[in-house]
Amino acid sequence: MSAPSLAGDPVVRRPTAPARLREGLTGPVRGVLKEAGELAQFSGRAVLELRGVFRYSAEILRQVGILVTGSLVVVALMQFVIGMQCATEANYVLRGYGASAYSGVFTAWCGIREMGPYMWGYIIAAKVGCGLVAELGSMRINNEFSAMESLGINPMRYVVATRLMACIIAFPMIYLVGLAFHMVANQVIIVDQIGEVSKGGWEGVHWAFIRPVDVLYSEIKIMAMGMAIVLVAMYYGYTAKGGPVGVGSATARSMILNLVLIHVIGSVLTMVFWGLNPASPVGG
């Protein structure tokens, strides 16, 4: 766009076309790499600060309490909704293959392996992640971190590491509760609403396709997603600047990165855990 030249503007030589092309191509890459480096540095510091974090165990417990009271209900509700969704599609899709009796395969894998973790990622990114950006961002805007530093409290430990530790403590259990709601919803739809498969038929197949180790893999998946989300969110909150607008746009930027990270982590871990060995007790 050609901006009207301001009076008294010194004559600036416009860069040549190749230089502009080069800048246009490398600029975004450089920006992304710089931000990734800062994010990695922040994450590394946050993880290192975990060593001495238990001196603030009261703060950790308070954060765990906030996570449980604030996020458990919405996680359980959304897992219930996605459980209904999985079960509906399971029945309709496998009916097309003439295998409604195997709806349990679909629900077992949908819940534990894929949609449970993804749904977890979405909700944690929205509820916990955006909340952390807003909280830490407004602390940064109000210079609370500087105040803590001048009082001799390390905000990376007192604010960031305590929240990280609280998430490490609370996430696996919140997820398990959500997963239970997911499977209740599966049964409600398949057995009670659609009613094409009997309760015994559904349960037999469903549980036959879930190994205990799958639950462990699922937990690893959600912890990987959860840690990535929380660290990204706290990075954007910790480095927010520019008043109320800055906090809002930091939230928006953290969501971009979080949504991409959720899908990349989910897909990569699926390939790692189940790509080579589908672990399906059928056939040879």
Partner: peptide, 22 residues
């Protein structure tokens, strides 16, 4: 102020997600 905007964005995204899924 800043807290208000952050909280509003947080609530908006949670509500949108719930709305979309339901």
């Amino acid at each position: 102020g800043a807290e208000g905007v952050g909280r509003a964005v947080n609530q908006a995204v949670v509500l949108s997600f719930v709305g979309i899924w339901a």
